[in-house]
């Protein structure tokens, strides 16, 4: 227990890096994922095809391989990014297809009459999507979307294997230097991950109750 308290500053530094990976990666994934979802249901066949290829490729590649690409293979192509930036890019690119799939399932869950009503009012594809479909889809999407973000929070730990000093790597380092108290140290790391994942779960079930009733 002392080992945890003595090293609290290190934990907090690692937790800060984990949080910034989570927020930067999450927001980028959200933006990219929304674009991919819109492409996937768009009238333009070329966009649809590109979105499908991207989604399928990234969903079937392990995150570790995505990281290896940005940390070790890409520097052969382009100037090397800092490790933290590579980690954010890898997390965002990996998470975006999952965001897109969650959104798409939400769009498919909106009753077809809503789309018909929007179209019969003369709205085009863009208007129907942004004014009628997405606002409703976002609500239905909350539970699967929160799951995507919980997965993202846990996936930030992979960055620790690729030279980013986030929570997992700090914990690993501390466990190495304090061989006699490995168990409390790792439980300390676990605690900080739960600080992110458990509130997300609670928020999700609250929002679900409040918003799903609203329609």
């Amino acid at each position: 227990m002392n080992a945890v308290i003595d090293n609290l500053p290190l934990y907090l530094q690692g937790f800060g890096v984990t949080l910034s990976l989570f927020f930067i990666g999450g927001i980028s994934a959200m933006i990219l994922g929304t674009i991919v979802a819109a492409m996937r249901i768009s009238p333009v066949a070329g966009f649809r095809g590109a979105a499908v290829v991207y989604t399928e490729a990234l969903r079937n590649t392990p995150l570790t391989l995505v990281f290896i690409f940005f940390v070790s293979v890409l520097p052969q192509l382009a100037p090397r990014l800092p490790y933290f930036a590579s980690a954010c890019v890898a997390l965002a690119l990996y998470t975006a297809p999952f965001v897109a799939e969650a959104l798409r399932s939400g769009v498919n869950g909106v009753p077809i009459g809503q789309a018909e009503a929007a179209r019969s009012l003369g709205m085009g594809f863009g208007q129907a999507l942004t004014l009628v479909i997405f606002p409703q889809a976002f609500r239905m999407v909350i539970p699967p979307m929160v799951n995507v973000f919980v997965a993202l929070a846990k996936n930030t730990s992979v960055a620790g294997g690729f030279f980013v000093a986030e929570l997992f790597q700090r914990g690993k380092g501390l466990a190495n230097t304090n061989g006699d108290s490995v168990i409390p140290i790792l439980f300390g790391v676990a605690f900080f991950y739960l600080v992110i994942t458990i509130p997300l779960g609670i928020v999700s079930s609250r929002l679900e109750k409040r918003w799903v009733v609203a329609r």
């Binding site: 919980v150 846990k154 996936n155 930030t156 730990s157 992979v158 620790g160 294997g161 997992f168 914990g171 690993k172 466990a175 490995v182 168990i183 790792l186 790391v189 676990a190 991950y193 739960l194 994942t197 458990i198 779960g201």
Partner: peptide, 15 residues
Amino acid sequence: RGMPVLLIMLFILLV
């Protein structure tokens, strides 16, 4: 469910 798999693996490996 709230743990990264990586952390569980590291725990088993070290302990």
